[in-house]
Design a protein around this nucleic acid. Structure first.
Lengths: 259, 259
DNA sequence: ATTTGATTGAGCGTTTTTGATTGACTATAG
DNA sequence: CTATAGTCAATCAAAAACGCTCAATCAAAT
């Protein structure tokens, strides 16, 4: 028996572990063993639990803090294929934009792709909460209005209660939205409640809501609800969309465009 | 900044890699190997993944930043004119920032320089209308709140009546302001009325107003008035400031810091 | 004191990551 | 046209990390 000293109880150990990870943003299993004086097996079990609770994110060799930018490039292997889908979806969305329109651009990679296509349009007004979309259009292009709010690092979007004050002064013709998950039952879901709050608010201020989402989003449920599918007027997605889901959608009156 | 010996976790490595690319805009594989201490094979795999995630763009021999193109065109030469003075002014301003503070960052190259120095501070809240400052702090650093409003392209700041609705919900401890011109008679002046409107509003919401302006601004008058000098509590400037102007300033109770 | 259920650490086969090797490709020079 | 240098993708083997199982251990309850 190596260390007769002090073995800590699981809850305290979890707290310490959280603290360790928050401290440096990233830590390796081996180091956790050293610092907490436990075996790798135990560390892995702890990490599993903390990940299930959403407190951290595991990676090969250790774990990273969820607040840190380190875990931003979270992508499945479909990500590279999805790039082409996203581009086609964005192209299709372009047909909805008319001269004189005021449109809203949400966060998310598909909408960002769409934003890039608007760089040459000078006859529209773009309202957005996405810092990346703003950056795309900052040099030239449409009249650009950013809504105020707290920056959420992971998504690079302005979210939360502060977004309300600018948004309630505005109306937009068309809102182009992204999402993490969509199901008939839960509607739109996203990872962050503040993000969800702003999404829902935006949709209530738009005359027409157009959702840009590749088929992988269908059936997925994320953490926070961001509005019912009934709020959507049009969904632009790819051809792989689940047939059953498609049927349900059209039944509720949502226009479906598959590219 | 150098990590000599121990192997880093993949996410951290990706993070550093992004930073490297963002820093110089371009980088070749060979150099990444040297800087991160890994083999070319690993570097290429990392680059593949980062490209799939849209974080960078690969080119033969290395990789380039995706946002490198429209970065700081006319802004840079303006910034380089009095770069040394601006940097010293920014360093001096840093002394005013205390833990827990909520500070406002205005537009302009001097304040932008100041923003860069805040990248490692995580214990403060930054409110800003400057897209460039936001961009500096978007990856890491303080809690970041952007005020809403219409983007003015030339200055890359959010200005105009829409800024009112977010601002009136906020109070800040210290506002770090820039300006185009300052005189005893006209006070602060800037080129755009909307810009002036927002500046004036911000200063009314700040407990302490700190003006960052090199000495060339003294005596200059621009188009739109953005508030009287009495609104300023502290001016940080360089040693070349006109003696007469300095005397008048201190007479009105403004604290003067010359660096 | 004994039982019980949970927690822990070690052993072991599997998976992931990494760096070296190889052959293909491109561009430039001779 | 060939040679050469540089880069790249694919493949492979070694090392590290992983998940799983099982026995030992521990805390709490009887």
């Amino acid at each position: 028996m190596l260390n007769g000293n002090h073995k800590e109880l699981a809850p305290r150990r979890h707290d310490n572990l959280r603290e360790l990870i928050r401290g440096s943003g990233v830590i390796r299993v081996e180091e956790i063993c050293r610092r907490l004086n436990v075996s790798p097996a135990t560390v892995r079990r702890d990490l599993d639990q903390l990940e299930a609770a959403g407190a951290i994110r595991r990676v090969h060799g250790g774990a990273v803090s969820v607040e840190s930018r380190l875990d931003e490039p979270l992508f499945d292997d479909k990500a590279s294929i999805a790039a082409r889908e996203k581009n086609r979806i964005a192209e299709a969305a372009l047909k909805f934009v008319e001269t004189g329109d005021t449109i809203y651009l949400d966060g998310g990679s598909t909408v960002l792709e769409f934003a890039r296509l608007l760089r040459e349009r000078t006859n529209i007004t773009v309202v957005t909460n996405s810092l990346r979309a703003a950056h795309e259009l900052a040099g030239r292009g449409p009249r650009l209005i950013l809504i105020g709010g707290e920056l959420r690092r992971l998504s690079q979007t302005m979210v939360g209660p502060l977004t309300r004050f600018t948004l309630q002064e505005l109306h937009v013709d068309k809102a182009f939205m992204g999402t993490i998950g969509m199901t008939m039952k839960e509607g739109l879901t996203t990872t962050d409640p503040s993000e969800a709050f702003t999404k829902e608010l935006v949709m209530s201020r738009a005359r027409q809501v157009i959702l840009l989402a590749d088929s992988a989003k269908a059936g997925k449920v994320s953490f926070a609800r961001a509005g019912r599918l009934e709020n959507i007027h049009t969904l632009i997605t790819d051809k792989e969309l689940d047939k059953e889901f498609a049927k349900e959608l059209t039944k509720t009156g949502i226009k479906l465009i598959k590219v």
